[in-house]
Amino acid sequence: MPAPVLPPVTDQAERLISLGATGAFTPDALRSEAAALPDRPGLLVVGGLRPSELAPLMRRADRPGFVVEDMTDVDDFAPVAEVPDAAVWLLADPDRGDLLANASPAEADARFTQDGRTPMLLTEGVQWVLQAPEVLERNSCFMTIGSRVRRPSGRFDARTPAVWISGGTGRDGRERKDAAKVGWCWWNNRHTWLGFGSGSARLAG
């Protein structure tokens, strides 16, 4: 499906304020930051927000979102894509990457480099779902390969984060069926139902 049409960033700021997802900003400060961003379509992103705190704010099927139980280090997934030196920015032209479904994260990353796009961060992906829950569809969700965990050895962890819909099985629990969830996949694996979130640029005010 085409990417959901996002409201103006000033309206997106009000949405985050209503959810209490403003980070270190007061409501008025976030409004001011949002108003200073470039006037073009895109996703308002507040930097420094923890995925563990954002995930429960997602709502789907009248259920709160969650992080899978074996991802206790979810907040350690840090940006590997270039991020502005700013606390708030605009992710221009966010896309779910359906055309890359069944590619591996490594292949998708190479495609983004070729096409001049930037992979979505995990926190961007969750904030996208906060603004547009309909971006998650059964059998059409997305990875956020702009965030990874670097081990003490300097090598990347083999996992890559993703945002999708719980089937209510296993440790998720039946009560979470159809809820939005943050989980992980292996870097070299392919999934027919997962695209790759990306944007055309990150723009600060």
Rank of each mutant, 00 (worst) to 15 (best):
V74L: 13
V74D: 08
D75K: 08
D76Y: 10
D76R: 15
D76C: 15
F77L: 11
F77I: 09
P79R: 10
P79F: 13
V80N: 01
V80K: 00
A81F: 00
A81V: 08
A81T: 14
E82I: 11
V83G: 06
V83P: 07
P84F: 05
P84Q: 09
A86C: 11
A86R: 06
A87V: 01
A87F: 01
V88S: 00
V88D: 01
V88C: 01
V88L: 02
V88K: 01
W89D: 06
W89S: 03
W89F: 12
L90M: 11
L90S: 06
L90I: 11
L90G: 10
L91Q: 06
L91I: 08
A92S: 15
A92Q: 12
A92P: 12
D93Y: 00
D93S: 13
P94N: 07
P94G: 04
P94I: 08
D95H: 06
D95G: 09
D95Q: 10
D95M: 03
R96H: 08
R96A: 14
R96K: 05
D98A: 14
D98T: 15
L99H: 09
L99T: 11
L99A: 14
A101W: 03
N102E: 11
A103L: 15
S104G: 13
S104P: 06
S104W: 00
S104M: 04
P105C: 08
A106T: 12
A106K: 08
A108W: 00
D109Q: 14
D109R: 15
A110Y: 07
R111Q: 14
R111K: 15
F112H: 09
F112I: 03
Q114C: 04
D115Y: 05
R117T: 15
T118K: 07
M120F: 05
L122M: 06
L122D: 02
T123C: 10
T123Y: 02
G125W: 00
V126F: 01
V126E: 02
V126K: 00
Q127E: 12
Q127W: 07
W128Q: 04
W128E: 01
W128P: 05
V129D: 04
L130H: 07
Q131M: 13
Q131G: 02
A132E: 03
A132C: 08
E134K: 12
V135W: 02
L136M: 09
L136G: 05
E137H: 08
R138T: 14
R138W: 14
R138L: 13
N139Q: 13
S140R: 15
S140H: 10
